[in-house]
Amino acid sequence: MPDSLALTESTYYILLALHTPQHGYGIMQQTEALSGGRVRLAAGTLYGALNALCDKGWILPLPVEDGSRRKEYKLTEKGLQVLRTEVKRLRELADNGERILG
């Protein structure tokens, strides 16, 4: 799959939430907050997406610290690139929509 394809809404918000490293539940909460309650990532969906994103090298799990059992993830340089490209693409979509519909 070329990396230039559009991201899904879930992927987009997961990457965005991981701009600051955090664990799965944090990603769910932040996504809900960012989207004003519109996007609610379900746990199974998020778990599958996190594994897929790790495989792609867009995010990576942080070493688990003592005393904390929750695994945290962070965005990689590659992930950040993907996210920037996507923001540009989304801006184009929104701009065109506004230009034509007024």
Partner: peptide, 15 residues
């Protein structure tokens, strides 16, 4: 809070 396992079509298809 709300509780769902799948929140998009892709993960439902994967299931």
């Amino acid at each position: 809070g709300s509780f769902d396992l799948f929140s998009d079509i892709d993960s439902r298809i994967a299931h």
